[in-house]
Design a protein around this nucleic acid. Structure first.
Lengths: 260, 260
DNA sequence: CGATTCCTTGAGGCATCTCAAGGCAAGTGG
DNA sequence: CCACTTGCCTTGAGATGCCTCAAGGAATCG
């Protein structure tokens, strides 16, 4: 379903498509100005000049298969990654071997910004389905924005957005019960899918109950039970990982019990 | 005890002290190059040229008294703030009126970076004791770093550090029990105090049990009980808000049960 | 087809929350 | 100076929400 997003090359450029077939092993390059994700992704808010500059960087594209990692904790930080299609999770390893999921990322979202702090990635990124990403060399991006305060502001704003995102997750982990957490999670997912042109009320979860649980600070059994509770309350229909939000207002109320 | 930090003017500059007394209502201006916090704060890692540029901005200093707010959720974002002395808390208001504390900030730390995302502050900053801050106009800082990739990198790294900080807090909230949380909190505090030249083993908490609880995702009674448990285990001595870490290794073990 | 992974559900236990009472220190007003 | 209030902390007792352990079903894979 999501894989439709994977075709960045439009029919108006058949020559390029033909070329691609012949140079298959060479890394594909992408320009932001023609990307269907430009309104969601890095170039969001940038005008013609800056867009051209971004285009000149010709970001390399790469496919990452289900279960493969894009980068791991401790890897040298060189690239910021933009998701082109599919879903990733970010996670940290705990001492006892368990993992803590710190985020899920979908098309148009950036990953790897936490690597700047120490020069090495602070988390790992794993594909939850077959995915494609753009690798954005941080050094190049930095050079570019050193000459342009608009560009720089865009990058800073993206980082700030990450901070805000984590703020709200902290709130969630710090002060909500199981139903509120799962409701918040589903509503957030629903909104992000909607912003990408997908249905806000019906979707397929790319992550396991255990991954949701880790992200929300609860056990997988509790996640499962909470799904069942929502079904009984006629807020959701659930078939494995297929979710249909039946009563959006009700779900919102379940979430708003504590927040905004 | 911490209030000693409040005197940025050393005895070697008595003339300036005298001046301050006469121009009290006018806003004080500060230069980074002579600030005793320069190794911890914004200019950390910058060389002579960039330091001079920062100096040219002449950040305004401001006192904020106990309980007063520096900025509130929704306020227009114009400044990043550096703590000069004292302690702040960042917090969000929940719908039911309760607050969720999202961080504590001490000398040399930056606040307000979450405001970039939307152009308005996403959290409020409240002084937990009498404090002093530097107000850093974001627009000016942005102009400066638009001409200098070192400067820009420093700002980005600071934001990234904030992201990493929140990552670890999420881990804490997502996967630790009460003793692990409080141990992590105390060890973190201890390290930050040490980096500022204070004792790592004996200090005064600036925040209430309720604020600690909100930050750590537990009720104030549980915080209190956990303090008592640590005292019984001879890890701490506690007298109200005065804390002495008696057994650092033991406390570290209490924390390391799950992490690293 | 067996092995594996993921999910659901039940039963019981426990950590933390909730409610409640009381102590202590600092501040306030008579 | 004392009585009173207020804010903050501690501790107890009981309630409960989530976790742990366990069993079994369904889908997927080699």
């Amino acid at each position: 379903m999501n894989t439709a997003l994977e075709a960045p090359v439009r029919s108006s450029r058949p020559v390029f498509v033909a070329q691609r077939a012949h140079v298959a092993p060479a890394p594909l390059k992408t320009q932001c100005s023609t990307c269907h994700l430009r309104e969601l992704c890095l170039p969001c808010g940038l005008g013609g000049t800056e867009m051209q500059q971004l285009d000149s960087l010709m970001f390399a594209r790469r496919k990452v298969k289900t279960g493969d990692t894009l980068y791991r904790e401790g890897d040298k930080f060189q690239f910021i990654y933009a998701v082109r299609s599919g879903t990733f999770k970010s996670s940290l390893m705990l001492a006892d071997g368990r993992e803590q999921v710190s985020g899920f990322h979908m098309a148009g979202e950036l990953m790897g910004l936490d690597g700047l702090a120490q020069g090495t990635h602070a988390s790992s990124a794993t594909a939850l389905e077959d995915t494609e990403i753009c690798a954005i060399p941080y050094a190049h991006l930095n050079e570019l924005s050193a000459g342009n305060s608009n560009m720089q502001h865009v990058v800073s704003r993206l980082m700030s957005r990450e901070i805000v995102r984590e703020h709200s997750l902290m709130m969630l982990l710090g002060s909500m019960n199981a139903e509120e957490r799962l409701a918040a999670f589903l509503l957030n997912l629903s909104q992000r899918l909607k912003a990408r042109g997908w249905s806000a009320s019906e979707f397929h979860l790319r992550m396991s109950r255990a991954e949701i649980g880790s992200y929300l600070g609860m056990k997988l059994e509790t996640v499962s039970r909470t799904f069942s509770a929502f079904v009984q309350q006629r807020l959701l229909e659930v078939d494995k990982r297929h979710i249909r939000i039946v009563d959006l207002d009700g779900l919102t109320r379940a979430f708003e019990m504590r927040v905004q």
